[in-house]
Design a protein around this nucleic acid. Structure first.
Lengths: 336, 336
DNA sequence: TTTATTTACGAATACGTTTAAGTAAAAACA
DNA sequence: TGTTTTTACTTAAACGTATTCGTAAATAAA
């Protein structure tokens, strides 16, 4: 690259050594303020930008973090990235994005490739059909990793989650208190604590009110979008539940279509409640009762913790930070 | 880093030079298949991962692109990133994300910092209050850049846009044909061709039907969300339009709230149409007529073109690729 | 056979930065 | 005064890879 301005350029121009220039740029105590100022001024004038590759190679710091998520085109994850980006920005860190599309192999390929020293740390929300946590157990030994929202239980790393159990429990109670007798459940993330806790909260609430569920009332998430629609439709037709709890946003919207198709009135014939960060929830027809996760805050928290680890100011890897979700009651569960 | 496996490790193990190892890893014709195979096998066995910093430093190729957008938590942009990521994935490229939050200075800081050789190319959808295209004129001389959706007219670079003029024209005609007599316009992106074209399409349609608009019927986008709501409400109260065209999604939802507040029935009293990629548009109350941009395809196209440029297989920088949006008519504009 | 060409590799250097180690001069101390 | 310490720099060696150039052996051409 001709014309590139490097430390050499600055050094030659100022008649000092490149070491001095480098140290001045890094605001080292070894350099006099006078010299630093000269270097900074010239650097600004010549629009010097430190070559990140050279810097990384020497210092082993990349000022880059990776975010691995299932899907970016999802309200929850894009809000989380928003939070992550905000924190990264303050620290002048760069953010790499990787989408797994819920594919476990892709996920492994990403994490493996990130071990080459491309990033300082990783934020990950694991793919729903990952059941191999052995791989992650190895990963966390090699590079700082913070898990958020979709996490494993027995991994020696910091995890940021929401109160999945409690919020599912509360949501179910809300339905029961509205008089629902048969509450179906749309099950997703079943091999992650996230999904397990949500389901457990649902179960516990039923138990408390001496209610039961059968396997026929549970619809499991399918990668195939139209399959999901079909499965929900079949379940609703067969079982005729008077309420549905959806453990993820993607399964809530099909419910609306199913209700229309089967001529069921929401909330009269069928009440719906879903984990969701849809900002149009209040405007839906009818407006959707949601369990809203603090997605932005989760992102911020995850990134903050990661940076604390990178700063070596944090030494409790096996900790679970739990943020509170909020149940926002709307028309889709209005009583009577 | 102790224990890191480098070319040196492989070379020592196989009793060959590091040059040979490096060439073998890059599948050079200079190396015999036999040797290559030995290197590949050992690399796999030892889980060798090429150090990207060292590689970049030497080769000046980063296998990384940057995406600069106003907001990630926006359906259009997250879908676009999705498309970009898909293409990048196929090429084993890494994707850095930067959010400007519609701040022009942030935008300039990002692009400047990216000139340090951190990325091979840039995809950008410019911030709405950027009116300084001089900066971008300089930028495109220094690094491959592809603009998408939010673009400038007179920049010597490839631009990927949608048929903003035509789709705004068609949308306006649709309203007029429904009998609307007074069509208000929510104006955004006014210093970009994108915004200008949309407005021009609106104007042209009115003109064709010998209709007029006054400045009072135009609401300009404000950074402040609640201001937007207030401005729209004031305009609707004062002007009593029978239809609104919103040039961006963010201004469409406030219309729903305003209509509720003012007790106006959509579509009877007020028809609404908006540029939008909301996947809940069909489920809103009432469902929203949208001009839907092929966001995913725009991302794919932008990334594809960027890679062609990086491959030196593309030499028409000043070209505008126009993809078609689709007008999806729903209840918010239903006639009679 | 001799000569020219091809094949397969190695030595050495450069990419731009950081940093350990060394040093002269200035300042502080005895 | 001489001695130690501090200040402000410089020298030189890395970090891990890619690449130019050189070369010995193998093959082809004469």
């Amino acid at each position: 690259m001709k014309g590139t301005v490097t430390v050499k350029t600055l050094a030659k121009e100022l008649n000092i050594s490149i070491a001095t220039v480098s140290k001045a740029l890094n605001d080292s105590y070894e350099i006099s303020l006078e010299t630093k100022q000269k270097v900074w001024d010239l650097a600004k004038k010549l629009k010097y930008e430190r070559n990140p590759s050279a810097s990384n190679l020497r210092s082993h710091k990349t000022k880059t973090i990776a975010v691995i998520i299932p899907e970016i085109a999802n309200n929850f994850f894009s809000l989380a990235i928003n939070g992550i980006e905000e924190i990264a920005r303050k620290r002048d860190y760069h953010v790499l994005i990787y989408q797994t599309h819920e594919n476990s192999e892709t996920e492994i390929a990403f994490t493996d490739s990130l071990l080459s020293g491309r990033v300082d740390g990783i934020l990950i929300s694991v793919s729903s059909n990952t059941n191999n946590n052995e791989h992650f157990k190895e990963l966390v030994k090699k590079i700082p990793v913070v898990f958020f929202d979709r996490v494993f239980e027995d991994i020696d790393a910091v995890k940021i989650t929401t109160d999945d159990y409690e919020s599912a429990y509360n949501a179910t109670c809300h339905l029961i208190e509205c008089g629902c007798k048969k509450i179906a459940y749309l099950f997703a993330l079943n091999n992650l604590v996230t999904g397990k806790n949500r389901f457990a909260g649902y179960q516990k609430a039923l138990e408390r009110y001496n209610m039961i569920y059968t396997d026929e009332m549970i619809v499991h998430y399918d990668k195939n979008t139209s399959k999901n629609y079909e499965n929900i439709k079949a379940m609703v037709s067969d079982q005729k539940p008077d309420a549905i709890i959806s453990s993820i946003e993607d399964l809530a919207l099909p419910c609306y279509y199913v209700a229309r198709e089967l001529n069921l009135n929401i909330p009269k014939d069928l009440k719906i409640i879903s984990f969701s960060n849809l900002n149009t929830a209040p405007l839906l027809n009818p407006s959707l009762t949601t369990i809203e996760q603090p997605a932005f805050e989760i992102g911020k928290e995850a990134a903050s913790i990661l940076f604390k680890i990178l700063d070596k100011k944090y030494f409790e890897p096996n900790e679970n930070h739990i943020l509170k979700s909020s149940l926002i009651k709307r028309e889709s569960t209005s009583c009577g």
